Simulated scan of single mutants.
Amino acid sequence: MSRLAPQPAPADLSSAILSAPGWARVGITMPDARMRERAADALAQSILEQVFEQDRTAHADQLRLPL
């Protein structure tokens, strides 16, 4: 039986978005399609690194409690 990874909490995602590079957060609003795509890629990568990097350090059955 395979275990599904725990879903990140909305607060975790919000924190990851706000701590992403500023140029990527601003870049997704640019009129240039190429810039928006690069910014969206950078924003997604930053979110994945921040949210799922935390999960690698804890066991799947362990509760994540704020420090």
Results as ranks from 00 to 15, higher is better:
Leu13Arg: 06
Ile28Ser: 01
Arg36Cys: 02
Ala60Arg: 09
Arg3Ser: 13
Leu48His: 11
Gln45Phe: 13
Val51Pro: 00
Ala9Glu: 14
Ser2Trp: 04
Gln7His: 15
Val26Tyr: 06
Thr57Val: 09
Val51Glu: 02
Arg34Ala: 10
Glu37Ile: 03
Arg36Met: 02
Gln50Tyr: 13
Ala11Phe: 14
Pro6Gln: 03
Pro66Leu: 15
Gly27Tyr: 00
Ala58Ser: 08
Leu43Lys: 00
Ala44Phe: 08
Ser15Met: 13
Val26Glu: 02
Pro31Ile: 07
Glu49Cys: 11
Arg25His: 09
Arg3Asp: 09
Asp55His: 04
Ser46Lys: 12
Ala42Cys: 12
Leu13Gln: 09
Leu13Glu: 10
Val26Arg: 01
Met1Glu: 10
Leu65Glu: 07
Met30Ile: 02
Pro8Ala: 10
Ser14Met: 10
Arg34Asn: 09
Arg64Cys: 04
Gly22Leu: 14
Asp61His: 06
Asp32Met: 12
Glu49Met: 10
Gln54Lys: 14
Ser15Leu: 12
Ser14Gly: 13
Asp55Lys: 03
Ala33Lys: 09
Glu49Pro: 07
Arg36Leu: 02
Val26Ala: 06
Glu49Ile: 11
Gln50Phe: 09
Ala42Pro: 05
Ala33Leu: 08
Pro66His: 15
Thr29Asp: 02
Arg34Leu: 07
Asp55Tyr: 01
Ala11Ser: 13
Glu53Leu: 11
Ala5Asn: 10
Gln62Phe: 01
Asp12Ser: 05
Asp32Ile: 12
Leu48Ala: 12
Ala44Ile: 11
Ala42Met: 07
Ala39Leu: 01
Leu48Val: 12
Ser2Gly: 06
Ile17Phe: 05
Val26His: 08
Leu13His: 10
Arg38Leu: 11
Asp12Ile: 00
Leu63Asp: 03
Ala16Val: 01
Asp41Arg: 03
Glu37Tyr: 08
His59Val: 09
Pro6Phe: 05
Leu63Ser: 03
Ala9Trp: 13
Asp61Ile: 06
Asp61Phe: 06
Ala40Phe: 04
Ile17Asn: 04
Leu48Asn: 11
Gln7Arg: 15
Gln50Gly: 09
Ile28Val: 07
Ala58Met: 07
Phe52Ser: 13
His59Lys: 03
Pro8Val: 08
Ala5Val: 07
Ala16Asp: 04
Phe52Cys: 15
Arg3Ala: 10
Ser15Phe: 08
Ser46Arg: 14
Met30Cys: 03
Ala9Arg: 15
Ala24Tyr: 05
Arg38Tyr: 02
Ile47Gly: 01
Pro31Trp: 10
Ser19Asp: 06
Pro6Tyr: 01
Pro31Ala: 11
Leu13Pro: 03
Pro6Arg: 08
Pro66Trp: 15
Asp55Trp: 00
Asp55Cys: 02
Asp61Ala: 05
Gln45Pro: 05
Arg38Ser: 07
Ile28Trp: 00
Ala60Gly: 08
Gly27His: 01
Arg64Pro: 00
Ala5Trp: 14
Ser19Val: 07
Arg38Asp: 14
Arg36Asn: 03
Glu37Thr: 03
Ser46Met: 14
Pro21Val: 14
Asp61Arg: 05
